[in-house]
Design a protein around this nucleic acid. Sequence first.
DNA 1: GCGGAAGTTTGCGCTGGCGCAATGTCGCTG
DNA 2: CAGCGACATTGCGCCAGCGCAAACTTCCGC
Lengths: 235, 235
Amino acid sequence: MSAVDSSMVAHLPLFESLDTAACEAILREAHSIRVPKNKVIFEQGEDVHSFYLLLHGHIRATKMTPAGEQVIVRYVATGEIFGIGQAMGLTTYPATATAVDDSVVLVWPTTIWTRLVADYPALAANTLKTVGSRLQEAHTRVVEMSTQQVEQRVAHALLRLVNQSGRKTAQGIEIDFQLSRQDIAEMTGATVFTVSRTLSTWEQRGLIESSRQRIVLREPETLRALADAVPGDDA
Amino acid sequence: MSAVDSSMVAHLPLFESLDTAACEAILREAHSIRVPKNKVIFEQGEDVHSFYLLLHGHIRATKMTPAGEQVIVRYVATGEIFGIGQAMGLTTYPATATAVDDSVVLVWPTTIWTRLVADYPALAANTLKTVGSRLQEAHTRVVEMSTQQVEQRVAHALLRLVNQSGRKTAQGIEIDFQLSRQDIAEMTGATVFTVSRTLSTWEQRGLIESSRQRIVLREPETLRALADAVPGDDA
DNA sequence: GCGGAAGTTTGCGCTGGCGCAATGTCGCTG
DNA sequence: CAGCGACATTGCGCCAGCGCAAACTTCCGC
């Protein structure tokens, strides 16, 4: 409902190679809403009705298995689009989107996607790039899950989060939203227990500093080395 | 270099909502090549130079980890495009593509992608759908790897292969290309040994019939049930 | 500031699946 | 058709990580 200045978003990947006029036209079709922490934006299986752009905050996308286990598919960072199932030919959302923080998102009705793409072909190309890089990331995760142990997967997960949502502090780089051990477990396919043990060990070694739902990486490079370490290669 | 009749490909997802003239124009830019079994089409890390459409045969896309382990990212089925990294903004191929059978592929130089998309915007939209469904599949695999045991993952892998490349026989549905235990292991993040044991058990139960590099599903439904079974739910 | 809920840690027993070695089997090539 | 190389199977020992129970800590609302 509040107006969004095109200068705030024109630099985003979605708007690449679109001029200001085009950006403004596209933005006019959206309205922005505030989403309080823990609010569900859309649910897995729900009919697709809107697509979104995250302006501020953090969104978590999760999938629920038939067995009732939850898996975190990804965290959406500021500036990213999400809920774009219809562009990929889906009629229902493949995952549930929940605000991790109080967030602000732009909302478009899916009905205008076709028209937008027709009017601004660059939109499709830009979206393709976004989806492509997510495909990349997903494949990387598949490879990780296939070949690495829990400790390495946790290291990768934290590094990924820090890269997209890290905040520099005196002690190191902090993940700037609440992240529980359970969340990390759901990102890495491990149990809370194993994650907790892993983090404890790292904390003792001084690699990280953590408290309830909060994690600071003190030595990201060491963690990076650990993440890429080859098991039988301890010199 | 042989000419390709547009009637052969016009029905493919890539060409959806494009008229015959457009199809023909796009096809004129491609040339077709025969790829013998086991030939590598492009290698992970190689500079992107072409994108492809598989007309006949089967292609395997693999990623190699720093530790030297191979993971099968996906099998490309007839009619699918592959090697479309540049559309997603990549400059090097993210995986290696190898012919599993003698295959026939259409090849386009990447340089014309931009022009093609500009001339035929539906191409971008169609590609977006394709990439989107692959993202879906990749996420499904991540969820599987996070929550399921090897037996279930193997079941899923076989069912997926049979769906895209199954051939009905007297005994059941056969996967119509050579597939080793090692291959299945690389698709599921298991070892050859565990895969072998799993298949042996299934064979004893009459669920499948297998020999060297060949697998026939005799009771796909039972396998499906097994794949989706909830562990603590054995009634 | 008290009580409870939510999140975290830790110990302990157990097991799915890995690692390796040895053996068996198929299929091709000379 | 012999022999070799690739693929598959099987047995056995072992361990990373799960499952569960219990205790502890932090946070928050009343």
